[in-house]
Nucleic acid binder design. Structure first.
Lengths: 341, 341
DNA sequence: CTGTTAGCGCCTTCAA
DNA sequence: TTGAAGGCGCTAACAG
């Protein structure tokens, strides 16, 4: 395979008997340059497949058109949907996306940030790990004048734009739906107290109960740590074996709801007749299970797209002071797990 | 936020009263440089947080430490698993990964390739789209001396290393398992004839039947086009309503198997007693459905990791002539959908 | 052991 | 309307 040497401006200038700067300007149709010259240079460039050396351009301009994107997990329906939206949005605006994952570990997140910074991305899009409480590793970006946009899992310790799902409202609607369906004792298997999304959802749950004068009980609120199927299963068992068992369960996420459904199926407790279940995120699995799992869709693709558009705007404006909060509306998808009628 | 100006080698040299090249060499502990000088420079650099301008280095060295990765779909359990492995592998070797998706369209794939080439990745990792029959857009990489590694969905029109799953053997084992379980009439819902993986799996299916003197029928082979749930459902119906219905179905992928399971459940046909089902890919859904879906695991994470390691090795060796084929072993995961006993 | 010099490819004043 | 020259930050060949 012959590796053809790349044509440079210098080559063009020499061939055409003009100076390098004229060639450079002609290619970008600088108004000072004569039309004839422009045509000549462009024709020549086209004919010989001239491609500017992007490395030189980037070096000169001190930017890369690359954006860093860090998520807790890559193999994850919601996050991969966000990534998909971010990549498509970036492509439209002429940017590339460098993807990395933190595995929900602060150490990995910090490493990823350093790598991104070292490879000189123009900006960062991040959904922080569960362990991230402080944000010093993120401040480094701002100190270098590189904008950061947070999405979904965010921290208030960093003043950047934030693109979030309206967790409160999503939870509120989910619980209201259960109330409308006639469930009387609604439990909530919630996420960690340090995680903002989890708190918002819990608040939405509580507000819905209050607004509709529903019975409340601290026994009906269970705190997840790992937020997995097993916890859903175990908490469901605890709830149903308690003195005052609930007749509906609102879960922090679909995976937890799956554990709940599994327990109910094993014990032959009818869903949705005896117990109603609603999840959060609307993963692929929600439509696959039987009965279908009602869930709150977070519009991940849109979130990714909006986030990247915002970030690129900040990059172009050299703006690292923006703190706008963009809220993506949720949508309750009702399926068999909570639909009595 | 004060944007502190970056320290350069020039600054260090001036401060320390030495030349730029001495500073440069000292930082990389060049043997010619006196230990004292090295120490002095390193101390100074550390104290003042010197970070080399990566853009300048890349420009000078004509490489980016960025690798392009193109998959048909991002929101896809198998591909996101591969990406995860590739990213982790790249990280260990000091490379970043630029991700893009083709949506299984040749046009999008070509665009993605151009963008990657323009942003000057050091090499490309790709799983081609269903539409990709020729490979001219990929040859451009090789022509520029940038190695390419193909994985999973590959084309033989491009001479590069290929990392593939042993589709033939995976299919063979799946079908052999059905035979071992006592199924007598095994059907296959297969993928497109233009797609190599699909053909390999079909051959594995056929060979297993031959080796065990099983009944064969062209009526038992159904060709998918979209490879989705609906096709699985429809073909299952066709198969079971035929003159000579099969008692087991080996599906090209889990999604198709899901459609099959749905049909069987609706018609109250017992799985695995009356009909056995095996899928391919071992997606998350395979363990979630009830009964669990037996499936052939493709070890996506390992595939991503092996692919990227191979690619980086070629980049380092400036080697674009390699055509090694790396085969990842599959593993049959047996679940309720095919386990009679 | 260290400094000088030249240059990577491009852009951008400044001068003609 | 064009050209010459300088420089972005770093590396490396060549001299001392």
């Amino acid at each position: 395979m012959t590796e053809r040497k790349k044509l440079t401006l210098k080559d063009i200038a020499k061939e055409l008997g003009i100076s390098i700067s004229t060639a450079s300007r002609a290619l970008k149709e600088h108004p000072d340059i004569a039309d004839d010259t422009i045509k000549m240079v462009k024709d020549f460039a086209e004919k010989h497949h001239y491609v500017p050396n992007i490395l030189a351009v980037n070096f000169r301009k001190n930017r890369t058109y690359n954006i860093g994107l860090i998520v807790p997990e890559l193999v994850h329906h919601f996050f991969s949907t966000v990534i998909s939206g971010a990549i498509d949005g970036a492509k439209k605006l002429g940017y590339n996306v460098l993807v990395s994952q933190s595995n929900d570990l602060l150490a990995d997140e910090t490493t990823a940030c350093r790598t991104m910074l070292a490879s000189s991305v123009d900006g960062l899009l991040i959904s922080i790990s569960n362990e991230t409480l402080e944000a010093d590793h993120l401040k480094e970006f701002l100190e270098e004048g590189k904008p950061v946009v947070q999405f979904d899992k965010i921290t208030d310790h960093l003043n950047t734009p934030k693109v979030i799902v309206d967790d409160f409202e999503g939870a509120y609607q989910a619980v209201k739906h259960l109330i409308d369906q006639g469930y009387k004792k609604i439990a909530h298997i919630r996420g960690r107290r340090e995680v903002k999304n989890a708190n918002e959802r819990a608040l939405g749950y509580q507000k819905a109960l209050e607004d509709h004068q529903m019975e409340q009980s601290s026994d009906w609120i269970k705190d997840c740590v790992h937020i997995n199927e097993q916890e859903g299963y175990d908490f469901c068992e605890e709830l149903l074996k308690s003195q005052n068992p609930p007749d509906a369960i609102f879960c922090i996420t679909d995976l937890v709801a799956l554990g709940v459904l599994k327990y109910l199926k094993e014990k032959q407790i009818a869903v949705p007749q005896e117990v109603g279940v609603v999840g959060f995120s609307n993963w692929k699995l929600a439509e696959i299970v039987n009965p279908g799992l009602s869930s709150v869709d977070q519009h991940g693709y849109e979130m990714g797209e909006r986030s990247i558009v915002k970030l690129i705007q900040l990059i172009k404006d050299h703006n690292i002071e923006n703190e706008e909060v963009i809220e993506i509306k949720t949508k309750l998808i009702i399926r068999g797990s909570s639909l009595k009628s």
